[in-house]
Amino acid sequence: MPYVLFSVAGRPVTLAEATAVAAGLLALLVFLSLVSLVRQSRARAAAAAEEAVRREEMDRRLRDLARIQAETSGRVQSMTEVLAQRQSELARAVAERLDATSHRLGETLSTAARATHESLTRIAERLVMVEAAERSLTDLSSQVVSLRETLANKQARGAFGQARMEAIVADGLPRGSFAFQYTLTTGRRPDCAIFLPGDPRPLLVDSKFPLEAVTAFREAPSPEHRKAAGQRLRADLLKHVHDVAERYLVPGETQDVALIFVPSESVYAEISEHFDAVVQEAYRLRVVLVSPSLLMLAVQVVQAIAKDARMREEADRVRAEVAALVADVDRLRERVGDLAKHFSQVGDDVARVLVSADKIARRGLRLEQLDFDSAPAPSGAPAASE
């Protein structure tokens, strides 16, 4: 009876069966081992082949790398030589540039030094001029202060306006055509009287002007004060215009128009701008307010009128002088004609003298050469024209 080792699912397993199964398993293990060994040998062969290929590829790459390294070494050496040459050329160029730059820098510094010296000289000269201008400004400021003090004083201001008016008139008109402090038959003495040519009636000029009201109008701190100062200025102007019209417009003795001299252009412009009614009232009374420029223009017009009148007065003398000049020119033409005749006669005489001199020279030449072949002229023959 077979020996039962164990049972599986109620079935008994004998020793033979177990041995057979173990043998099969062992055979299977041996087969699997052989398969594994075959596979491992194949893998090792493939790995060896791959390793050989890899080694060959590595050798090839190493050979290429060695060749490239050799080429690179050669190129690096040639580049080193080129760089050394370029470096030497660059050093030489830099040295030359530095020398040229140093030379130019020296010239520039010397030029800059000369220019600086000249500039300092000019600055010193200008400083001298500035000092002179400063002294002039100091003098001018003192003069302005003096002018302010003069304008603050009514009598001094009147003298200043009169002096300016007299300067304009005296500079523009000839002596004798004006008079200062001229006395009228009424006993009034205007500041200036201008005499027009052909008219004994003088044109009178008054140089007094109410400047206090103008100053108050300008320096008014508020609109109310400015309005009050404007009313005061208007009243003062109208009073002065009426006084001039009453005193200096004398029928038959003076011109029909009188002038009031305003010694400041700005004051005249302010009056014309803000007090046109006063200006129109003065025109109605035949009184004209004039600034320094307008007075200068009026003086030039009077000067032109006087010059024209004098030209008309001297017209006869001018015509006589022109007639005498024409007669002198006629005499000059006659004398020039006589002189031309004399010159023509002298020219003919000189030509005859030259002909005689040529004949004498020719005869002297024949005498020198003993040329007596030509028969002498008979004694009764007329002589050649000389």
Rank of each mutant, 00 (worst) to 15 (best):
140 L>Q: 12
108 T>P: 00
178 F>E: 00
122 R>V: 11
134 E>H: 11
109 L>N: 05
97 R>S: 07
172 G>M: 01
143 Q>P: 01
106 G>F: 06
88 S>K: 08
186 T>Y: 00
81 E>L: 08
91 A>M: 15
70 A>C: 08
139 D>F: 07
77 Q>W: 07
98 L>C: 04
135 R>Q: 11
114 R>V: 13
86 R>W: 01
85 Q>K: 15
100 A>P: 01
75 R>N: 01
103 H>M: 04
137 L>K: 14
156 A>E: 10
70 A>W: 08
97 R>W: 02
169 V>D: 02
168 I>K: 02
125 E>Y: 13
144 V>I: 13
84 A>K: 07
116 T>F: 09
103 H>E: 01
116 T>P: 04
148 R>T: 14
101 T>Q: 09
143 Q>E: 14
139 D>G: 10
160 F>Y: 15
135 R>D: 10
170 A>G: 07
102 S>L: 09
105 L>W: 02
96 E>T: 10
87 Q>V: 08
107 E>F: 04
95 A>Q: 12
172 G>K: 03
163 A>N: 15
166 E>Q: 10
175 R>G: 06
190 P>F: 01
182 Y>L: 04
90 L>G: 12
92 R>T: 14
82 V>K: 10
176 G>C: 06
97 R>A: 11
151 L>T: 12
111 T>C: 01
166 E>N: 09
106 G>T: 06
85 Q>R: 15
107 E>R: 11
141 S>W: 13
149 E>Y: 08
180 F>E: 04
117 H>S: 11
108 T>K: 04
119 S>H: 09
130 V>N: 12
185 T>L: 02
169 V>F: 00
83 L>V: 05
154 K>N: 05
176 G>P: 03
140 L>S: 10
132 A>R: 15
66 A>H: 07
85 Q>V: 15
185 T>S: 07
129 M>P: 01
72 T>F: 04
77 Q>R: 10
